[in-house]
């Protein structure tokens, strides 16, 4: 009995990987060009924003919270970066990312100090940030011509690998290290697992929550500036799709919304799966309607094979 449970858990562990291979093979056989180096780079390029934001989201969901403001935050930071680019050049990116951290800190503070559930706080702030971004850009795209700012995505710091492909990889490495190798990371799991007990065990839960929200904000800031740099402009609502997709990516990867179970590498799978399916459907020229249905079905399928029910007391 125990053995079989173990075996299924082992199988569960590799299911996202299997799903990924099956989906990739499907598109690969259908379109030989799908796995050309050019398209793999294109894929990485297209998933980079989602990857970065989802990394940040992983921190939040591990704690059992949620951050619905990431998409609007990305737009907001992108606008700030774009507006400052003519004056500060590359420095504008740093300010943009700091703005993201500030929004994250605001989220975290309201959640922990004012004690409003994170879902509501971030959902409300999403609207406020969209409004603020629109006000800042006068409702019209802010074009960027500063070369340093544009190099943020198209330049290359390392082995002629474009930054837009390099940055997500750095982010994955950093997040992996922080979540798995530091006390901060362990306390995220502890908070997600049993917040009350963690509180009494002496971990400074509130501080950790605020920092986690700031990390999520920083990631949104990086993604927003990267997006602005890549489109050569900060556009209204450009980050909107990131919110739902990043939550979906984290959950499809197998990190549970109730918190305490999962991790950044699982999120990588989730993002790659979403990106491959999205790009594959573009290749096939799938109708938007079918696209919606496929996305929904894949989400249910991935979560139902991925979820570890033994660690859940009951399903809400």
């Amino acid at each position: 009995m125990k053995e079989s449970v173990k075996r299924t858990t082992a199988l569960m562990k590799y299911l996202p990987l299997i799903l990924l291979v099956v989906v990739s093979l499907f598109f690969g056989i259908l379109y030989p060009r799908f796995f050309s180096i050019k398209n793999v780079l294109n894929l990485i390029r297209q998933m980079s924003f989602l990857m970065i934001v989802s990394m940040g989201m992983t921190f939040i969901i591990l704690m059992g919270s949620i951050d619905a403001s990431v998409g609007a935050n990305a737009t907001f930071c992108g606008v700030i970066g774009a507006l400052l680019a003519p004056y500060l050049g590359g420095g504008a990116i740093i300010i943009g990312i700091l703005a993201g951290a500030g929004v994250g800190a605001l989220n975290g503070t309201i959640v922990t100090k004012v004690k409003v559930p994170s879902f509501l706080v971030t959902l409300s702030l999403m609207g406020a940030l969209d409004g603020a971004a629109l006000l800042l850009m006068h409702s019209s795209p802010v074009n960027i011509s500063n070369q340093t700012f544009l190099d943020f995505s198209n330049g290359s710091l390392l082995f002629s690998l474009p930054n837009v492909d390099l940055i997500p990889i750095i982010m994955i490495a950093v997040c992996y290290f922080v979540i798995n190798k530091t006390a901060f990371g362990r306390s995220l799991y502890a908070i997600g697992g049993n917040e009350q007990a963690t509180f009494y065990s002496g971990i400074r839960v509130r501080q950790i929550q605020i920092i986690a929200f700031m990390i999520s904000g920083i990631m949104a800031g990086v993604a927003g500036c990267l997006q602005a740099s890549m489109f050569e402009a900060a556009c209204p609502y450009m980050g909107d799709a990131l919110m739902m997709n990043s939550i979906a990516a984290v959950v499809i990867g197998g990190t549970q919304l109730s918190g305490g179970v999962g991790g950044p590498l699982r999120t990588v799978f989730g993002v790659v799966l979403i990106a491959i399916i999205g790009s594959g459907m573009n290749f096939m020229g799938v109708e938007p309607a079918t696209r919606h249905i496929v996305t929904g079905a894949i989400m249910i399928l991935a979560v139902s094979v991925n979820i570890d029910r033994s660690k859940m007391a009951y399903v809400k």
């Binding site: 739902m244 939550i247 979906a248 959950v251 549970q256 919304l257 109730s258 938007p288 309607a289 079918t290 696209r291 919606h292 249905i293 496929v294 996305t295 929904g296 079905a297 989400m299 249910i300 979560v303 139902s304 979820i307 029910r309 399903v315 809400k316």
Partner: peptide, 18 residues
């Protein structure tokens, strides 16, 4: 036994798609 958050997120896509 799937969490309602993810179920309804997914079915939202499906219903809209239909």
């Amino acid at each position: 036994k799937l969490p309602s958050f993810i179920v309804t997120l997914a079915t939202n896509f499906i219903y809209c798609g239909i």
